[in-house]
Amino acid sequence: MATAQCACGALRLMFSEPPQLTALCHCFACQRRTGAPFSANAFYSIDCVEIFGTSTEFIRTGDSGRKVRMHFCPICGSTVYWKADVSPSWIGVAVGSFVEPAFAPPAMSVFEQSKHKWVQLDETIEPFQGLPIGQY
């Protein structure tokens, strides 16, 4: 059973299934959230996750007008997971929260329109300039 957690361990998630998708995102919101040039994200069925601890929620409105609810630890500030109105049956989790070097590699890279030019990715990762609507 996989476990993700914040830096201090007060907010933890346990999963009974593997992720349905692992992806990189280069959008400006993810760059700001992570403090890095892109985010690495794992998406799970909401039914396979147990959440332990308290989170603080920050609601962001995306370019589409839909809401993304970011959940971070109120003690250490780590953003561990999020829920998007556009996909209510999925929960997104920061891959870094697993501290697992053998974690499933990304299948795609989205919002490459704002990718830093010096970021080079493996050719096995499918690139998208925006969000691949209707594919996942």
Rank of each mutant, 00 (worst) to 15 (best):
P19F: 05
T34W: 01
W82M: 08
A10N: 12
S97Y: 03
F98I: 15
P18N: 15
P101N: 13
A23I: 15
R60D: 12
W90V: 01
A4C: 03
H116E: 14
I125D: 01
F28A: 10
P19H: 01
L121N: 01
P88M: 08
A23W: 09
P74V: 08
R66P: 06
L21E: 01
I125R: 06
K83L: 15
Y44K: 06
A29H: 02
N41K: 06
T124C: 00
S109N: 10
E126M: 07
H116F: 07
Q129A: 08
A102H: 00
I75N: 10
L13I: 07
G130P: 03
S39H: 04
Q120W: 09
S89K: 08
C6F: 01
G35R: 08
A42S: 08
S64Y: 00
P74A: 13
Y44F: 15
S87A: 10
L131W: 14
F103L: 09
R12H: 03
T56M: 10
T34M: 02
T3V: 12
V93A: 10
V99M: 00
N41H: 09
F98Y: 13
S64F: 00
I133G: 07
A36L: 00
S39I: 06
A4I: 07
E100K: 12
Y44I: 08
A2Y: 15
F111K: 06
V93Q: 00
E123G: 03
P19C: 05
V110I: 12
A42V: 00
H116G: 07
E100C: 12
V119I: 15
S109C: 03
M70G: 10
R32I: 02
F52K: 06
W82L: 14
V93D: 02
G130R: 12
T22N: 14
E50W: 07
N41S: 13
P37G: 12
P101T: 14
L11V: 05
G35K: 01
E112V: 04
D63N: 05
P105K: 11
P105D: 06
E100R: 13
A23C: 14
F72L: 09
M70N: 14
I59A: 06
P101C: 13
M108W: 09
W90L: 04
D122T: 12
L11H: 08
Y44E: 04
C30D: 03
P127H: 07
A102D: 05
R60W: 12
T22K: 00
M70S: 14
F128V: 04
V86C: 07
T54K: 02
I51M: 09
S64W: 02
T56H: 14
C27M: 11
I51Y: 07
A84T: 12
C25M: 06
E17P: 13
P37H: 12
A84P: 05
K117V: 04
G62L: 00
A94K: 13
H116Q: 13
Q31P: 03
V119W: 12
C30N: 03
M108A: 11
C25Y: 01
P88T: 09
T22I: 07
R12Q: 14
S109R: 02
Q20I: 08
R60L: 10
G134V: 00
D122H: 14
R12K: 15
F38H: 04
P74F: 10
Q5N: 05
E112H: 02
F58P: 09
G9T: 15
Y44H: 05
C76R: 05
G9C: 14
C76D: 15
S89R: 06
Q135G: 09
G96I: 00
Q120G: 11
